[in-house]
């Protein structure tokens, strides 16, 4: 028997059945229930606001080679930008975790500001856009403070 014959007979015996569709529907309902349950449980990990104390271990873990000399914290505590030479080290909260990226400082400085938000575009399909929230009267590029005086 040729491979093509086997393929045709397999497709005939495996064609999408009503049972499969029922299973998909049941799975979709289960997902909804489980997500609602996880929201009700409130067992996400604690994610403290970023400040001088909380950012230090993050920088050590995520940018172990970098030696940032200055840093800016977003007013809402959800993001921070450290400057190490000509590089910007961006840290931002996603869910109950943090995501980090390094990008040239010049690119960060050119990011578009709209009201109290700054959109940083990266050439990275895993994180093409980072949105930071600012105080309404905050400057951009951000005013940095020395790391030691956080």
């Amino acid at each position: 028997m040729h491979l093509l014959d086997v393929a045709v007979s397999t497709v005939k015996s495996d064609r999408m059945s009503i049972g499969f569709l029922v299973q998909l529907g049941g799975s979709a309902v289960s997902i909804l229930v489980l997500v609602l349950l996880s929201a009700w449980a409130r067992i996400a990990r604690p994610t403290p606001a970023l400040d001088g104390t909380t950012v230090r271990p993050l920088i050590l873990d995520e940018f172990p080679q970098a030696e940032p000399d200055s840093i800016w914290f977003a007013a809402d505590g959800a993001s921070a930008v450290a400057k190490a030479g000509e590089e910007a080290l961006i840290i931002f909260r996603l869910g109950d975790g943090f995501v980090t990226r390094a990008t040239p400082w010049a690119q960060l400085a050119k990011a578009r500001r709209t009201g109290d938000q700054v959109d940083i575009r990266l050439n990275d399909p895993a994180a093409p856009r980072i949105r930071l929230r600012l105080d309404a009267d905050a400057a951009w590029p951000p005013m940095l403070n020395p790391m030691d005086e956080r």
Binding site: L24, I31, L37, S38, R42, I43
Partner: peptide, 27 residues
């Protein structure tokens, strides 16, 4: 796991959007 995590009987951490993404990927 979620219920026992909620009752602090086991170590379990769930974030709803992360959970939704994981389960939707499974489907």
């Amino acid at each position: 796991e979620i219920v026992l995590g909620r009752l602090k009987l086991i170590r379990a951490q769930y974030e709803p959007r992360d959970t939704a993404a994981s389960l939707a990927m499974g489907l």
